[in-house]
Amino acid sequence: MVKLLVKNRVQILVHISIWMLLYGFAFYPVVNNAQRIPSDLLPKLVAIIALFYINYFYLVPALLLKKNVLFYIMVSLVLLMCSVMVLHHMYEPIIPDNAFFGPGPRRNFGYTPIYRSFISFGIPYVISAILRLYVEWKRNENLRLSVEKESIKSELQLLKAQLNPHFLFNTLNTIYALSVKKSPDTSQAIVDLSELMRYMLYEADKDLVPLNKELDYIKSYIQLQRLRLSDSENVSLKITGEDRGRAVPPLLFISFIENAFKYGTDYKGKTYVKITLTITDESIYLNVKNKIGIFREPSKNSGIGLENIRNQLELIYPALHELKVDNDGNNYEVSLTIYQLKQGL
């Protein structure tokens, strides 16, 4: 409602400005030279206003916006010519029969040549068409941006919907492995999972979350992974920089970390995963490196999370991120830099 009022107010001010300018040009010579007001000036201005809004509200929407350009031009020329001729006939000069040989003829000071009248009518008429075309273009552009924004939002929700079940499936496998081994850490793993799911349920549907919450989520995830690993000596997480007052999209980094744990265990059961997060005033940098397990069979669904996060980055940070992936056959490394990190909530 407020936006509509502001929009209408702006349009009204634009129209008032146009007519003040037009009337200023029309009356300036009269006032500046202390001349009599031509008798046809006021009727001409009234006719110009009428033509302006007939064109603005009816002809442009009915013809020009519907691509009937030729018909619109023909109708406009006929309308302008008829208006000019009517005013010209009403205010043409009165010239007696002896105009060339007798005393000076009586003339109507409001007389204006037809071509000048046509120009004075035509310029505001064209302005009205341009103004209406701009208003329609602006309205369509706002509508397009709104639809695009909703489309991006829907796509992001779809990506998150795909990511969450994928993550849950992998985590349940971890708890299952602990339960099979009758590990005393099984109950703690369930508690950790409940904390992770609480975050996913109550935070992941937001556009942005505080960076410190996202980091807590990552720490809990890594702790959960440590519980299932037979050798986690080479698993490390290093975070530097100030995380307060910053915000990121939820679940932004987890796919890279999840992928590292999934493929970072070799045939001896040793896991090598190094995670580094560096936070600065201008950016956040994530580096995830893992060794590639020799006998691990790649799954056709293994790239779901990574593909989703690529799409998410393109949607949210189309020109404000750098993502590099290196694979030399022995080590897999992901480096992600996000610039102009958003301020916290």
Score class of each variant (00 low, 15 high):
M1R: 08
K3H: 13
L4D: 11
L5I: 10
S17C: 11
G24W: 03
D40W: 08
P43A: 01
K44I: 06
L45R: 04
N55R: 00
Y58V: 08
A62D: 09
L63I: 05
V69I: 15
L70N: 03
V78P: 08
V86A: 15
M90Q: 12
I95S: 07
A99Y: 14
P103M: 12
I114W: 05
V126H: 04
A129M: 08
L133E: 04
W137C: 07
K138S: 11
R139E: 12
R144I: 08
S146Q: 13
E155M: 14
E155L: 15
L158G: 07
A161H: 04
F167W: 08
N173G: 14
Y176R: 05
S187F: 11
A189D: 02
L201K: 10
D205H: 15
D205G: 13
K206R: 08
K206L: 05
V209E: 00
P210D: 14
L227W: 06
R228W: 08
E233G: 13
V235Y: 00
K238G: 00
A247G: 15
A260I: 00
F261G: 00
T271I: 03
T271D: 04
I279T: 04
D281K: 12
Y285G: 02
N287W: 02
V288Y: 00
P298M: 06
G303W: 05
G305L: 05
L306W: 05
L313E: 00
E314G: 11
I316A: 03
L320W: 09
L320Y: 12
K324E: 11
N330T: 10
N331Y: 12
V334M: 08
Y339P: 02
K342N: 13
K342R: 15
L345T: 11
